[in-house]
Design a protein around this nucleic acid. Structure first.
Lengths: 193, 193
DNA sequence: GCGGGATCTTGACACTGACAAGATACGGTG
DNA sequence: CACCGTATCTTGTCAGTGTCAAGATCCCGC
């Protein structure tokens, strides 16, 4: 599985994996195709064949992220609070992916693969809100209201995750992710304490 | 005020201003000191005298951002909803600053100036939550609860702003920022419609 | 009016992303 | 098995960038 002379065998995945390490440690700005090639033990231009250019690599990286997010959200079913907790857990568990996914300047957001994976995630979120609100979304007014509710739920989960990752929060949340996330996200769904 | 032969006169501010343009258009990753120098009409190494290195420039840029955020939050007083709206309005009105401020890998987050400006912003946010909850924060349990409430409020405002900027939201919010923000942020403070 | 420090320039070096052309390995076809 | 086409990887090159070092120019206080 390694040490082939010429062909690496699984270079594409190796590069994506190395990218997660680098971005997680030093941020997306410090990412270098040549550094990834070095880590994978191939020549400096090898990545180009698989991804075309840097944006191509990050596009694949973002797609991988959205796919994993949708997978991480699935077990939560349609329980809104659990969806939020799963969202936060994904962000803190895959900081590099999360970081890239929401910076459109880094990759080609219109890429079909990315769009499909992103749609899966959005649908998982929407399902949770629909269920919590009773499920009747027939008339326009209620539909508009539903969208606001989805955005609100997504916002608080996304914002909490972002603030955690950016180190802006006054520590605390470090150890017990789920509990802290629940305490914050619970504010939205009703239970105040 | 311009066209000096050797001395630019206000290079530092000109560079920060140019940085806002570039980052706003092409993202922080596309920022180039040489490009900034070109836009300011100075030589390629001129920025170094004012900022030392790229991280130095972005540190100054982030500090400017936090200072402007604190200023933008001040008029909202201690009205929690208005604070949230002001926060979102700042983010959408200063996308470049907002984008840099919350990516610690880009600059020196420990810089004294940055820390001070950030503290001002945090205090403005906390004030709003304290007032909405009645003001009694004496005993420990309630204090802990207060912190959760601050984080929740900050999270939803920050998350909504981030999602808007990342283009992840299904359009809509574009035209009427204040209304859309109010509809979303209102979910947290109680009024459901 | 002059000296010193702040401001800017010029020149250089290593590193990066991208391109082009060539080398090597793999898989199917005869 | 021999062969060829293609996917994969390499080597070489170029412009652009960040950073450093040394020098030029300007402004202010004395």
């Amino acid at each position: 599985m390694a040490e082939h002379g010429y062909h690496h065998g699984a270079l594409r995945q190796a590069l994506l994996s190395a990218a997660a390490d680098v971005i997680g440690e030093h941020g997306a700005g410090a990412l270098s195709l040549r550094e990834l090639a070095r880590r994978a033990g191939v020549s400096h231009a090898a990545p180009q064949h698989h991804f075309g250019d840097k944006a191509g690599l990050l596009t694949a990286f973002a797609e991988e992220g959205f796919a994993r997010l949708a997978d991480a959200l699935a077990p939560a079913g349609d329980d809104l609070l659990e969806l939020g907790v799963a969202y936060v857990r994904f962000a803190l568990g895959h900081p590099a992916h999360f970081q890239v996914m929401f910076v459109p300047a880094l990759y080609r957001t219109g890429d079909p693969g990315v769009a499909a994976a992103r749609k899966r995630s959005w649908e998982a979120l929407t399902r949770g809100v629909e269920r919590q609100r009773g499920g009747d979304t027939a008339d326009g007014a209620r539909k508009h209201d539903l969208e606001d509710a989805v955005v609100a739920a997504w916002s608080i989960a996304h914002g909490y995750a972002s603030l955690c990752l950016s180190g802006a929060l006054p520590a605390g949340a470090a150890g017990d992710v789920d509990r802290a996330a629940r305490a914050v996200l619970g504010r939205l769904t009703g239970q105040p304490g």
